[in-house]
């Protein structure tokens, strides 16, 4: 093998050329220098090219995802019902349902107006809505209302402990990051880290506590690593975190 043949393979020769490239390198100082230069360039690029993504991307993505899930349900539904709509009896049943639903909704609106009228209850009702998109909106607006700090914490901690949607729980953890100075909030997030089975929630909890390392956090992470079915990506993130000294 001469320099020209070896040149394209100086970095990672394929298996069948490996021995030939190695043999050439032992006899050619110029190619050894070229190889060292290429390796140095690789290190430079790997160290300096990665650019941290802004956190706003995460919020935008999860909002899009929830919106898409909602739209999808809306699109899938009518497609099936249009076929059934041709049935006369179904139209009658539908008319009856509309009248019934309008009555029920009017009653609910009247009751809600009488019972609350306050912004706090409006946000709380958003957090308890059946639609994940509504609950997500509630999570992102909870800190903007008239609620006290304690009420905000309570509402969001309830969401991260009980909400059935992973995306809503992740969003609540992100909003709680602004309240990380509160020891009770930190303790609750550490608890979630060990108890929530969803890898996404575990990652969000890990991001939350990254800025607040403590012996307690390290203990919780050690326990988390004991879980045999822990998602490998989460395991790698936890290990990276644990190698960082407190």
């Amino acid at each position: 093998m001469n320099c020209r043949d070896a040149e394209p393979y100086l970095l990672d020769p394929p298996a069948h050329l490996d021995a030939a490239v190695r043999a050439h390198l032992t006899t050619c100082a110029a190619c050894r220098t070229a190889q060292a230069t290429l390796i140095e360039s690789q290190v430079l690029l790997r160290t300096h090219l990665p650019v941290p993504p802004p956190s706003v991307m995460r919020t935008a993505f999860y909002t899009t995802l929830v919106e898409l899930q909602r739209t999808r349900k809306a699109v899938v539904g009518p497609g099936r019902w249009i076929v059934l709509w041709r049935s006369h009896s179904l139209r009658l049943a539908f008319a009856f349902l509309v009248v019934f639903a309008l009555g029920a909704v009017s009653m609910q609106i009247l009751q809600a107006d009488q019972a609350s009228g306050s912004e706090v209850q409006a946000v709380l009702s958003q957090l308890g809505a059946p639609s994940p998109a509504t609950r997500l909106t509630g999570v992102y607006t909870v800190s903007e209302g008239e609620m006290t700090e304690a009420q905000v914490h309570e509402a969001l901690l309830t969401v991260i402990r009980t909400d059935p949607s992973v995306n809503v729980r992740v969003a609540a953890l992100e909003v709680l990051t602004a309240h990380a100075q509160d020891a009770a909030v930190r303790a609750a997030v550490v608890h979630v880290l060990g108890s929530d089975p969803a890898p996404l929630v575990q990652l969000a909890a890990l991001r939350f506590i990254e800025a607040h390392p403590s012996a307690e956090v390290h203990r919780a992470l050690d326990t988390l690593l004991q879980q045999p079915d822990l998602e490998p990506f989460v395991r790698a993130q936890v290990r990276t975190f644990l190698t960082t000294p407190i």
């Binding site: 090219l49 990665p50 650019v51 941290p52 993504p53 991307m57 995460r58 993505f61 999860y62 995802l65 898409l68 899930q69 999808r72 949607s165 992973v166 995306n167 992740v170 890898p199 996404l200 990652l203 998602e231 990506f233």
Partner: peptide
């Protein structure tokens, strides 16, 4: 099952962002 897209996003959005930035 769109909910699983979140994990793919977490794994790859940083690399894709860097790709577009450069």
């Amino acid at each position: 099952d769109l909910e699983h897209a979140g994990l793919l996003f977490e794994r790859h959005h940083g690399a894709l962002y860097s790709f577009f930035v450069h």
